[in-house]
Amino acid sequence: MMPKKIALSAIAALSLGLLAGCGDVTLYEPGVYKGSGDETASEEAAERRADALRDRAQAAHTDR
């Protein structure tokens, strides 16, 4: 009985490890993207470039 239990727990641990990609576990929160980060996706980045892009649109797309 005992070896069976040990084998089962070993399999459970192994499959958990496999599922977790052998470590480096990221916990998920709904609505929060946790892939490799992109600092250009942030509010600040969008804010920072908004004016330049607006001017650019006015300059590039209006008829001269």
């Binding site: 496999l18 599922l19 977790a20 990609g21 480096d24 576990v25 990221t26 916990l27 998920y28 993207y33 946790k34 892939g35 490799s36």
Partner: peptide, 14 residues
């Protein structure tokens, strides 16, 4: 089910 447990990168490789 799995991304909440293991995260994006680990799940993607799996």
């Amino acid at each position: 089910v799995l991304i909440p447990i293991v995260g994006h990168q680990a799940f993607s490789s799996y």
